[in-house]
């Protein structure tokens, strides 16, 4: 049962990255769209996201619940030492979620108020994945210092360091990329589609650049990133598969395939997460000085894990089909009876 619970944990983290990430990405795209095209971008985005955005963010809740029920020690440690970045991420989630629905449900669509919501929406769409990435970067890179004696080393420098921040920027670029690829398939006309293709291209380049930076900074800070990713066959294959699918994706875009490509983009992000996740498994949080918090060693008692696993299995029978039907129903250009 422990493995089932762990599988659900990774599954929900992955889906949060993919779906929630694409949501944030849409805001990032809006941020980097020229003023003339902003309202068209917003329209496409709203058509695509309106019905599903609440559900996309539920994966985070599921992941958090699995953490505090199943792995309370690890959750406690993360909450204590990463209090500040978690808090900023929360602020981002709050600002973004409310701005998104306020701008739609404000009965009077005045210019100043709409502008105000838009600003909050785009900036918080940027900040949230940035800090999500920073958190991810800190837990995998032995930055958390449980023996720290000063406030700064205990609560600040464990996340405010070059490595974590570059991972954060990389996450931002990936989110934007996911969203752009997704929006290509939702565009109303060729003009819009071309604009989203251009955005996907820019975000792709940004991701490659920041990805390069991540390796560079890792090397400077003596983080064994190269070894993690190229040192074992699974991670290596994952990275290669991601690169191949990236080439395929661009081939397909230029052949006019606009829907299927989102599967490739999702595949790439999955592979990136897999390659990092695999090298570290079963450790989730790595602490300075060599200690690891392992999913296999620091879990809740047997009975709790069993009940949690059961709840998740039953829950997924209810959730997955209806979620699938939701996505299916609100797909563009599909007629519903």
């Amino acid at each position: 049962m422990l493995y089932i619970v762990i599988a659900f944990l990774f599954f929900s983290i992955l889906l949060y990255f993919l779906l929630g990430g694409a949501d944030f990405g849409a805001g990032i795209i809006e941020l980097f769209t020229s003023a003339d095209n902003k309202s068209r971008t917003r329209k496409t985005m709203y058509q695509a996201m309106g019905p599903i955005w609440e559900a996309n963010h539920m994966w985070l809740i599921i992941a958090v619940v699995i953490m505090f029920v199943g792995f309370p020690l690890i959750y406690g440690a993360m909450c204590t030492y990463l209090h500040i970045p978690l808090l900023i991420m929360l602020l981002g989630i709050t600002a973004r979620g409310t701005a998104f629905s306020f701008r739609n449900y404000d009965a009077i669509k005045g210019e100043t108020t709409q502008n105000f919501y838009n600003h909050i929406f785009v900036y918080s769409s940027f900040v949230t994945p940035l800090f999500l990435g920073i958190i991810a970067g800190s837990v995998v890179s032995r930055q958390i210092d449980i023996h720290a004696t000063t406030f700064l080393s205990a609560y600040i420098f464990n996340w405010l360091n070059w490595f974590s921040v570059t991972v954060g920027l990389f996450t931002v670029a990936l989110s934007g990329y996911l969203a752009a690829v997704y929006l290509i398939g939702e565009a109303d006309d060729d003009n819009d589609a071309r604009r989203f293709i251009r955005k996907a291209w820019q975000m792709n380049i940004a991701a490659v650049i920041f990805g390069g930076f991540v390796f560079f900074v890792a090397d400077l800070e003596n983080i064994q990133l190269v070894h993690w990713i190229f040192g074992n066959p699974v991670s290596l294959i994952a990275v290669i598969a991601a690169s191949i699918s990236l080439a395929l994706l661009w081939l397909m875009i230029y052949n006019g395939k606009r829907k299927i490509i989102r599967i490739f983009a999702a595949f790439q992000v999955t592979m990136v997460l897999l390659s990092v996740g695999y090298t570290h498994f079963p450790n989730l949080v790595m602490v300075k000085g060599g200690q690891n918090l392992s999913l296999l060693a620091h879990h809740a008692p047997e009975t709790t894990i069993n009940d949690l696993g059961l709840a998740l299995i039953i829950g997924s029978f209810l959730i997955l089909p209806s979620l699938f039907y939701l996505y299916y129903s609100f797909q563009k250009k599909e007629e519903i009876i």
Binding site: M58, V65, V69, P72, Y75, A300, T304, L308, G315, L323
Partner: peptide, 21 residues
């Protein structure tokens, strides 16, 4: 949460499912 999570987590897990639905 370290101590209580595994004990009173059951309703929270089910609650997560309910929210999702």
């Amino acid at each position: 949460m370290e101590h209580a999570g595994p004990i009173f987590g059951m309703p929270f897990s089910l609650e997560g499912v309910a929210f999702f639905i």
